[in-house]
Nucleic acid binder design. Structure first.
Lengths: 187, 187
DNA sequence: GTCTATAGAACGATAGAC
DNA sequence: GTCTATCGTTCTATAGAC
């Protein structure tokens, strides 16, 4: 019998530290510009420990994207919980986007940033990104279904993505605000 | 006096071949995933020739982005030339976006793709990207100024950027079409 | 002589993997 | 820590054009 309380899928403090450090570095300086050595130094783990938990750098990328996606939707739901009307919830989602963009200093979207960093053949990675964004589209679709603006869900999705990337490229909040202003008028 | 017909920036077939190959490879597989050796092999130039024309890989990146930006706006103006009404021109810009996206198999925007590939310190590169996108914003602003929808120029810009990146991530034309549909209604 | 190109060895640094 | 591979870069040496 092992001395540990559970024998599999134990949270593992080391594993968490690796993912957290990877999240920070991949987002801040990019995936390809983040080396394994910097990663283990800042996470304060042994190189062997990293490859114990993640067979390859790409597996670590997948773990990072998966966790970030899950946490994003939790945060989104929490943020919108106080609001009741669907259209108000949609507008609140863009308020959250403004908060997020300013908090991260307009570094853009975790998922958009990765899409051009991985080879075409990394289907596992691309699938996660595609699914995350498909969930966002579904999120707006569900919100607006039953309202008189159900057919605008895709446009809202496009505005959301555009506000993210344009804010990043201009290092400015005007894209989010322009999207917000249009939606106030539209919805 | 030099024997050459012009003393600077002579076309140089070799230089063109390097830039053309860089454009193709940087766009197709990404900047960081394209190595110097592959580049010179496919361009069929000597390594010394590359470094003769471009002191560093980043200088080549800058040349590629600059050329791509100039050609984009030429193509844009050509495409819109047959149209007269400002609002029709705006819609036509999204038609061009659809053509472009399908032609390149939804590989996204040359400039959006690079932004997350270069370090924060590469200010020269980031400035080119920022300026290119600022020109797009100005383009829509100029088009719509004098119409009754002048205040929607920023929203149009955000829709354009969003259609680009969302199309890439979903590998699908629906984002461009959703943007187009909304604009038909809005303008 | 001068310019532009060629081919290719070799540099130090760093990559991801074990 | 050690491995091998590859990165961007520098360098030597050579050849043809004007």
């Amino acid at each position: 019998m092992k001395t540990n309380s559970s024998e599999k899928a134990r949270p593992s403090e080391t594993r968490d530290r690796i993912i957290d450090t990877a999240s920070r570095l991949f987002y801040k300086q990019g995936y390809n510009l983040t080396g394994i050595n910097q990663l283990i130094n800042e996470a304060a783990v042994a190189k062997a420990s990293l490859y114990q938990h993640f067979p390859s750098k790409e597996d670590l990328l997948i773990a990072y994207l998966t966790k970030t996606s899950n946490e994003w939707f939790i945060g989104l739901n929490d943020y919108l919980a106080p609001y009741v009307m669907p259209k108000t919830k949609v507008l609140a989602a863009f308020d959250l986007l403004l908060d997020f963009s300013e908090t991260v200093a307009f570094r853009g979207c975790h998922f958009q940033n990765i899409i051009s960093e991985v080879p075409q053949e990394s289907e596992a990675v691309r699938a996660i990104i595609r699914n995350h964004k498909a969930r966002m589209r579904q999120f707006f679709t569900d919100l607006l279904s039953g309202t008189d603006q159900a057919e605008q869900a895709d446009a809202v999705t496009v505005l959301f993505e555009g506000a993210l990337i344009a804010g990043q490229m201009q290092q400015n909040a005007w894209p989010v605000q322009a999207a917000h202003t249009l939606l106030e008028k539209l919805l």
